[in-house]
Design a protein around this nucleic acid. Structure first.
Lengths: 161, 161
DNA sequence: ACGCCTATATATAAAGA
DNA sequence: TTCTTTATATATAGGCG
């Protein structure tokens, strides 16, 4: 859908791959939102970043330790906060069932107040957010460092143990 | 993206809504597959059908009873078997973690041998498949009747209780 | 990295079979 | 229903700042 027809295989050039990722991720999310609205259907799109995979399985640290070291970074080192978990059009009952209300609120906060996100993180601390989400969902939620944008991503839900 | 620009709201005409659902669902799935391949990223797209929502929250029956009544239908009444849970490009380790291997195999079987699906259902019975998947994933997986195509959909993962 | 531009590829709404 | 077809809308690759 551009100047050139792409072959359907991994884009080897790192820069181009990340540019394409950003563009197509937003395109996919938009499409999901449209389908959700037009057809009154509930959709979740979950994107697991390469970073998440790496850290989850190769890191010697436990998630808590990863979060701890994230909190020890300076604000500048932390980069922008990014949430990669998107939920569209979840009905009240299903939302309650999944106990996602609180998370959705956090996502909305992040989306609409992204300028203040660093302050939010200071106020609550990532750890506090994590604990809250964990309690609400009875699920373990991890934050991972992303190679894209040098930012953190929230990958969920991964139900471990 | 058609002859006419659609407004972003629920399509009220039932037939048109279902046609659009079928088209856009396949489009979304294709996009997710492309993004997954091009950028080497793991993606899950989970579509909760309206039928699933209805039966989950409004039915007096327990899921087992719903499955039981499904099994009591004649083969013609059952219609074609459909799985709406799609996973793209899950790495081996992540796949093992989520214990999705068995499910993926089932999905592949269903996709590539859809002509034989009725026989497969006879051989294993939906109940047997359900139990197997439940054991493998430590998750509860439900089958729901879909208003679309008068077929059944596998909605997962919904982690209940 | 991020946004804007433009040419091109792709998706799809409506209609026809 | 379930295909095609076709006109049009949309997505996006590559460039530039």
């Amino acid at each position: 859908m551009g100047r050139v027809k792409l072959q359907l295989r991994k884009i080897e050039n790192r820069t181009n791959r990340h540019i394409t990722f950003a563009k197509r991720k937003s395109g996919l999310v938009k499409k999901a939102h449209e389908l959700s609205t037009l057809c009154d259907v509930e959709i979740a799109v979950i994107i697991f970043s390469p970073a998440g995979k790496l850290i989850l399985f190769d890191a010697k640290k436990r998630p808590e330790e990863i979060i701890e070291s994230y909190l020890n970074l300076s604000e500048k080192q932390r980069g922008r906060y990014e949430i990669s978990f998107q939920v569209f059009n979840l009905g009240d009952k299903l939302r309650n069932l999944l106990e996602l209300q609180e998370i959705e609120n956090e996502i909305l906060l992040c989306n609409f107040e992204s300028e203040n996100i660093e302050r939010q993180i200071r106020d609550k601390t990532l750890h506090g957010l994590l604990v809250m989400l964990e309690r609400k969902r009875n699920m373990i939620i991890y934050f991972f460092h992303s190679p894209f944008k040098h930012s953190f991503q929230l990958l969920s839900p991964i139900n471990i143990d």
